[in-house]
Every structure is written in C-alpha cells, then in structure tokens.
Design a protein around this nucleic acid. Structure first.
Lengths: 198, 198
DNA sequence: CAAAACTTTGAACGGTATTCAAAGTGACCG
DNA sequence: CGGTCACTTTGAATACCGTTCAAAGTTTTG
C-alpha cells in the first residue's frame, strides 16, 4: 500500500519508449533493438530503461501488450456494431481476421509474437502473458461468431481452430509470404467458414 | 568438381553432433545449448564445431533438417500404404497429423521451428530453408489427400489451411498446452475435415 | 618420408544484457 | 528557506555469448 510518488517524470515517457521500440522493430528488426541503440534513439541510457522495465524481455513483452491493446481498441467498434445489429455474416468475420493477420513481412507486432513464442517455453511468466493475450482474442471472436454467424455450432471450438490457422498464416506472412499470402489467408478463411455453414 | 578427401574423420561424427544437439535442446532448452556447453558434452571445442557448421544458427538449422528427414522417413510408409490401397479415409489423415504435431512442451523439433521462425524474417537463407521444408510437408499432404480423401476438392488449398492450423496448434502445445492441446488438435482436425466432406 | 592438406585447439575479440555504486534532482517538511 | 530523503539517471564493471584465427597437431598424398 505504499503509494509511491507515482513516477514523477514518467507516464507519458513510458508510452514513448514503447512506441519507439515498436517503430525500431519495424524499421531495423528485433536484433538491432539493443538496450544501447534504443537508449541512444531515446536520448537516455540503457541502464535507465532497465530501471523501468527490469529486463529486455520485459520491455519487449510490454511493447507487445501495448500494441495488442491498440488492436483491441481497433476491433471494439466492429464488435459492438455487429452485436447491436445482430448481423454482418461472413463479412464481419472477414473484417475481424483482417485485423488479426500480420500486415506484411515487417509487421512489428507479429515479429514480437514470434519472439515471445520462441521464449515462452522456457519462461512461465511469458507463457502466462501469452495465454492472457490469446484469451482476449478468443473471447472477442466467440462474441463475434455468436452475433454474426449464429448458425455456426461449437463457437469455442471454431474460434480455437480459426485462431490456430491465422497464427500459422501470420507466421508465413512475416517469414516471407507477405501480402500475397495475406490475401490468400483471407480467402482461406472464407472457404473454411463456408464449409461450416454449408 | 574438386573431390575433397570426403571429410576423413567425419560423416558419422557429424550425425553424432546433430543427435546430441537435439538431445540437449529437449533436456535443457535452446538457450542452454551454447557452443561451449555443447562442445563440452561432445568432448570437443567450440571452435571445432564452428569449423564444421560455420555458425550456431547453421548448426541449429542442420539439426532441424536432420530431424525433419527422420520424420519424412517416418511418414513415408504410411503414405505408400495409403496410395497403394487408395483408402484410409479420415484415419489416414489423422495418422499424418499425428506425426506432424508437436508431441509435448519439450519437443525439440518444434522448439527449433520456433527459433527458425523468429530468425527467418531477418535472414533470407533461413527463410528459404524454412520454405523448402514446408514444401516437403505440403507435397506429402497433397498426395495423401488425393489417395485417402479423393472427394475433397481443392487439395492444394486444404493442405495450406490444415498445415497453418497445425502450426498454430503446435505453437500452443510447445508453449504450455502440452498433450491436452495435442489431443484437442487431433479432434479439431477431424471436425475441420468433416466440414469439408459434408 | 617430405610436403601438403586438413583438423583441432584455445586464446582473443567485439558485442550483448544486466548490475550497481555513485551522482543528480526534485519534493516535502521543519 | 534549507536540508533531508526518496526517487532518477548515469555509465563503468561484469559475465557470458558467438565468432575469428594463428598456431600446433595429424593424416593423406606423391
């Protein structure tokens, strides 16, 4: 309960760090985002960043979380509209997957996901964080399925299946498939759902 | 055409290194497989390993390739039997995915896949190697679909979709889902194919 | 049996994340 | 005000990593 003096100089700056990290991942790749180079770009020191984020992995995880929150905000209006109108059909799902999938080879959010997956098997905390973010996507997708495609049974299962597929496609997009694979993934989603709705 | 003296002392030893690497990944995790620790376990020096494999990533990639070849050999008989009998149906597909999916949280083959994915976006050679291994699975799966489930149209597309889903599930298995998720993934595959065969 | 080619070693190098003692800075209170 | 105290910020020190490479050892070859 020790109310700290609530981080005098930070708050906005913290977000500034996350934004810059994401930027740098997109521009130069994850490996080039060292504590030293990132600190230089922010006009501070590596030690300072560690003082606030504890560890490099912690910083990267928080950056991914922050990015995910932005995406959650992005899909919220879509979701509300669909639930209100109880319509949308396959198109609603397609606009959802459009937000889910990696954009291209340089999508920093997905580059961070790959890094998280590679490390999660050795770090329970990372695994838990991953799980939590997955669950958010899952909850929203189930909601969307209920509202937009009520004729599809087994919403929980279909969500698990679709997200696994989308993860697989996003890997492909980021590791060379690019926008070509992205467009194919959208079509695949349409086909997979068509199979379910008969 | 310079016939080298065909690696005097290697050939068997090379495979020994790959096997030990895979073993060590399973037992201690990828991060603990350093050139020094691996060399110590093999009774040699780090410099020696790099003399033969060029780089740590090269060694890991070759280890994955070697592991993949063993799996290719494992699914070959299944495939031949199905093509000869022109039967098998869904069960044939299920025995295929059973080979594809990660076994559990410690499956070294899949831990190497995660590492490869994380690095491929920054290394064209790794991306190409990944692509090549993917293509082998794809070719075999298309063959299997043709023989075991000839009523399914769009075999190329279905293969792409299924493998993306299986990749997604394998990530989940390795990052904490374990055998529980693995069993669910098998059931998901059955359901997905059922949707296609009507 | 040289000499050439190939192996093997381990010390050195440049780079990394992380730690931490010391210095700096702003807020709070007597 | 002024001084104390908590919080910030720095950058040098640390430990560890993959990689390089000169030197020494070993095997093959002519």
């Amino acid at each position: 309960m020790t109310r700290t003096r609530s981080n005098r100089r930070l708050e906005r700056p913290r977000e500034q760090v996350l934004a810059t990290t994401l930027e740098m991942v997109a521009e130069e790749g994850l490996a080039k985002v060292t504590m030293a180079s990132l600190a230089a770009r922010l006009g501070t020191s590596g030690g300072h960043l560690l003082y606030y984020f504890g560890t490099r992995n912690g910083l990267l995880l928080e950056t991914l979380r922050w990015s995910e929150n932005e995406y959650a905000a992005q899909r919220a209006p879509i979701l509300e509209k669909v639930e209100k109108d109880r319509s949308g059909g396959v198109d609603a799902l397609l606009s959802f997957v459009d937000v889910y999938l990696a954009l291209d080879e340089r999508d920093p959010r997905w580059l961070l996901w790959l890094e998280l997956w590679a490390r999660a098997p050795y770090d329970a905390e990372l695994a838990a964080a991953q799980r939590a973010m997955d669950d958010e996507w899952h909850a929203d997708l189930v909601r969307l399925l209920a509202a937009a495609l009520p004729e599809v049974p087994d919403r929980e299962a279909v969500s698990e299946r679709l997200r696994a597929m989308w993860d697989g496609f996003s890997i492909g997009i980021v590791t060379g498939g690019g926008t070509t694979l992205r467009e194919r993934a959208l079509e695949h989603t349409r086909a997979a759902v068509a199979a379910h709705t008969g």
